[in-house]
Design a protein around this nucleic acid. Structure first.
Lengths: 197, 197
DNA sequence: GCAATAAGTGGACACTCCGTCCACTTACGT
DNA sequence: ACGTAAGTGGACGGAGTGTCCACTTATTGC
């Protein structure tokens, strides 16, 4: 049952993967990410459909590959970073309130969305968003904060506190002329109202 | 420029419209509403594709036709119904607080979703949700409440307070075993936290 | 009743995208 | 240099979309 040593990726395959990611990034950023087809990506990368499908089963997996490192960086900060994003309580560090940590999380997510909405929209469409590992992580974090704040049913509330970060809403608000600062301010109101003054 | 008298709908056309709506209702309720195709609906209604497209340009417009009356009833209640859903202040009526009205709205929307999620999911997919007349109405209502509560930037906040009612989230929460009561309770926490104690 | 006519009908068509398959090519270990 | 397994790309069948148009049918005025 022991896995053999992982067979190394061939040089041409690695080259093609890089071409795919670069091409996809461009296409997602250019227009409506939901309208990008696997065909488009293959053409833009200069490879055949079969080659593309060999590594990526659909558009979402490509977008997620591009998004992963950014999300992982934020997850790291939530677990071990400085307060108010991280938990604090280290040497000379105050314990931030749950409300402050939620507001800081909101701010960080707005930053991430501002830079990468096109990728998030390429990756998560509708109900599939809730099945991603990233969503599970955010949800766990918010449930933890809600529990700390002494609120009932923190899991249910976590989903509801995550909802205003839906990429479609963010896009809609930005397209309607709202600035990232306005959006962050609104979320901050929500955070402090719900988790404590 | 004067419109002539609206030409009456022919009897066979009316009959077919009824067949379409009945068939579509059944299909939406049966499985994944997003997976229902125009072909399916035409087949189930026993009519041709051309006939279907004559009246409804896409699946969403059919779902909206089915949904409209339910939403209109709620809109009526918000404007002129009894408090806390309506504004109150009539004979022997107290003025409900904005937080109470928001909580009542949340409760009513959860009821509506519980009965008709399949239609809402058939009608509103992703970013298109924000372009519907219904969304504009809810948004206006919530912005009004936020303004009454003395909060800054009520428009931005209105979008964010509407986000936890996203049909995809509702479906996800129900599928995860949450009851409508749990969902309403969470939203109530949100309402009272944000718009006042 | 019986045209005349405008509304309504349905299936064929051209198109796009999807996902798979497989004969061919190329990189890598020996 | 050679064998082989990984990698490649385009052809293919299937599903869905939206349009088009020759035919059918309800309605209106006589």
């Amino acid at each position: 049952m022991a896995d053999g040593p992982p067979p190394r990726e061939r040089a041409d395959a690695a080259r093609n993967r890089a071409k795919v990611l670069a091409a996809a990034e461009g296409l997602f950023a250019a227009g409506d990410p939901a309208a990008v087809t696997m065909d488009d990506i293959a053409k833009a990368a200069g490879i055949g459909r079969g080659t593309l499908y060999r590594r990526y089963p659909d558009r979402a997996s490509i977008a997620r590959a591009l998004l992963d490192e950014h999300e992982r960086a934020l997850q790291e900060q939530l677990l071990r970073g400085a307060p108010p994003l991280g938990p604090g309580g280290g040497a000379g560090e105050a314990h931030p309130t749950p409300a402050d940590r939620l507001a800081a999380f909101y701010r960080a997510m707005v930053d991430l969305l501002e830079t990468h909405v096109h990728l998030v929209l390429g990756a998560e469409t509708g109900i599939a968003r809730f099945r991603t590992g990233a969503y599970a992580f955010w949800r766990l974090h918010l449930a933890h904060l809600a529990r700390q704040a002494g609120l009932p049913d923190p899991e249910t509330l976590a989903d509801q506190l995550l909802a205003p970060l839906a990429p479609e809403l963010f896009r809609h608000q930005r397209d309607s002329g709202r600035t990232p600062e306005q959006i962050t301010a609104g979320l901050s109101t929500l955070a402090h109202g719900t988790l404590g003054r």
